[in-house]
């Protein structure tokens, strides 16, 4: 596997109770880039994300995250990765800052400006307010803050803009672009909002029924498919183009 890749999988499969939900999946995410992962509900996005984080073990195939096998070097992968998987959960009776403080202690990181991170994700003036009183959008912002606060090299975000309003979506877009382009953080994110993925991703992976059928840059899509990403997506999910 090439060492400039932050994430790569080769012929990855995952079987649950005899049913193969990930089938020979190949992904390549270059360091310092944003990789958008799109597919229908149940296509296998979250399963792949969980395999990358070592939450699930692959049935067959190779996985490398930051050059490491997440099944064998799980703690090292987790230390260097920030993640948001499914709906983020928190310690409800604690404030946003206390939640991040506990996260940092588990991560073994001490010198981080929590207030600055909260400000970065647009959570200002939340003070000692318990997380149980937060709106869906605020919780999503806090989930992103938690993924970021320990200064990871790689961000793996499952539907990070779910529940955000248009202002929030724009702010997160700018934040992700800043993290990738200025700080060199690699970002792998899944989303159903195709227009967003198109605007921020350097490369998009289309997953259909457990197979990444195509990896392509938004630029290539615009050049070759003037109808746009949505039409391209519809064509992919119905036709099933296989990744070269």
């Amino acid at each position: 596997m090439r060492n400039e890749l932050a994430v790569s999988t080769r012929q990855l499969t995952k079987t649950f109770s005899g049913t193969e939900v990930i089938r020979g999946c190949n992904i390549s995410v270059e360091k310092g880039t944003i990789y958008g992962f799109v597919g229908k509900n149940g296509a296998g996005k979250t399963t792949i994300i969980k395999i990358l984080l070592g939450l699930l073990k692959p049935t067959t195939g190779e996985v490398a995250v930051l050059g490491l096998n997440p099944a064998q070097n799980n703690l090292e992968v987790l230390r260097r990765t920030g993640s948001l998987v499914e709906t983020p959960v928190f310690y409800e009776h604690l404030s946003a800052a206390n939640n991040l403080q506990i996260h940092l202690e588990y991560m073994g990181v001490g010198d981080t400006d929590i207030e600055h991170i909260l400000k970065m994700v647009g959570l200002v003036n939340v003070g000692t307010q318990p997380v149980s009183t937060f709106s869906l959008g605020m919780r999503q912002r806090l989930g992103i803050a938690r993924a970021l606060v320990h200064k990871p090299e790689l961000l793996i975000l499952d539907e990070p803009i779910n529940g955000l309003d248009p202002v929030g979506i724009k702010e997160m877009r700018e934040l992700f672009l800043c993290l990738a382009k200025q700080k060199g953080i690699t970002i792998l994110l899944s989303s159903h909002i195709l227009s967003e993925v198109e605007q921020i991703a350097d490369r998009i992976g289309f997953i259909v029924d457990g197979i990444v059928v195509k990896e392509i840059s938004p630029l290539e899509i615009r050049e070759n498919y003037p109808a746009g990403l949505e039409d391209y997506f519809m064509q992919i999910v119905s036709g099933g183009k296989v990744n070269e």
Binding site: G54, L75, V89, Y106, M107, G108
Partner: peptide
């Protein structure tokens, strides 16, 4: 049992 397990297993601690 619940969703907290993902958070729990995301910490780099045995």
């Amino acid at each position: 049992a619940g969703e907290k397990v993902i958070m729990l297993f995301s910490y780099p601690v045995d």
